[in-house]
């Protein structure tokens, strides 16, 4: 019986052999550029290695112990968390409001949709460089404008002040990626039939009640998924942050990605093993958050029977 089954699997693999041949290039690429680096990082994180020459000595979990005691690691961990806590709700919430507005019919609605989507297709690194000029305290147009209006009497050093830089980065990141989330929300809003709103209107609901008691609850499954996607995206802001602030001033915008990059490639004594340990540790943390979120999503779905 068992043998027969085995035979049939082998036979089936053999009959479908063309499929596997066509899959080969993809498997090779993903293996080389995704699976291998992940596995290699796990291994490197157990080594005392600068990334050049022969792999260094196996030191077990020493890198992780150092990490645990490194205040700059926890600083970057905290920065990433602060970034998440501010950027995710802002991006998800603002995008929903915009999606509801842009779902309506009014003049130039297409123009607005395009306008909001434009930063999404701009390279993050370019956005970072351009924003440095725009937000420059000496001659940047934003400072020029707010000085003109008289709201402030000193130029605001958006990116150069340690207390402000991370929040400026949040703002720029939200602005850059808002369009894509707006698209997600608009797709989600399409799933609510128009006559449900009409029924709500006849039931006496005003616009605010329709939003909070009809739209939002119906969108809950989408909210959970969109938030999950955004959380994961918000842990990956390397390109923007590197060009915008490079992690400064005084490590105030050094998020995990920058921390890893600094230790692996730019510090005087590169420590690839240490950087790998940081990356792995953080990846584990993100996976945990994602797992909790997915667990909650399925729970809520079951509970609401959607």
């Amino acid at each position: 019986m068992n043998k027969q089954r085995k035979n049939s699997i082998v036979a089936r693999l053999w009959t479908d052999r063309w499929i596997y041949i066509f899959l080969l290039p993809t498997v090779a690429l993903i293996g080389t550029f995704t699976v291998y680096p992940v596995v290699a990082s796990v291994w490197y994180s157990l080594l005392d290695w600068n990334g050049f020459g022969d792999p260094g000595a196996f030191i077990g979990l020493d890198n992780y112990r150092d990490l645990w005691n490194d205040p700059l690691f926890w600083n970057s961990f905290k920065n990433t968390l602060v970034f998440l806590v501010f950027a995710v709700p802002l991006r998800v919430g603002l995008a929903l409001v915009l999606a509801v507005i842009l779902n309506g019919v009014f003049p130039f609605v297409r123009l607005f949709r395009t306008g909001i989507f434009l930063p999404v297709v701009t390279t993050a690194a370019i956005v970072g460089v351009v924003m440095r000029y725009i937000l420059d305290p000496t001659g940047g147009p934003i400072n020029f404008a707010i000085l003109e209006t008289g709201i402030v009497d000193q130029p605001v050093n958006f990116l150069g002040s340690a207390s402000l830089a991370l929040y400026s980065a949040v703002g720029i990141w939200v602005w850059k990626w808002l369009g894509i989330t707006v698209i997600y929300w608009m797709a989600a809003l399409q799933t609510i039939p128009r006559d449900v709103y009409e029924a709500a209107e006849l039931d006496g609901a005003n616009a605010v009640q329709k939003f909070f008691r009809v739209t939002l609850p119906i969108l809950t499954p989408f909210t959970l998924i969109i938030t999950l996607i955004t959380v994961i995206e918000a842990t990956n802001v390397f390109d923007l942050m590197l060009t915008l602030t490079g992690g400064g001033p005084f490590y105030s915008t050094e998020v995990i990605d920058i921390f890893v990059y600094r230790h692996a490639f730019t510090s005087n004594i590169p420590r690839l093993g240490y950087a790998s340990a940081a990356a792995i540790f953080f990846a584990a943390a993100v996976t945990l958050v994602a797992a909790v979120q997915i667990f909650l999503v399925t729970r809520i779905r079951k509970w609401r029977k959607l």
Binding site: P193, E198, A199, G204, A205
Partner: peptide, 26 residues
């Protein structure tokens, strides 16, 4: 006026009871 739609237009996230009492709650 109350209206009954061809597609029912019930609120999918509410129970039968909540569907029927939504207008009264409002």
């Amino acid at each position: 006026v109350a209206m009954v739609f061809q597609s029912y237009a019930l609120y999918p996230h509410m129970t039968v009871e909540e569907n029927m009492t939504f207008s009264l709650k409002l």
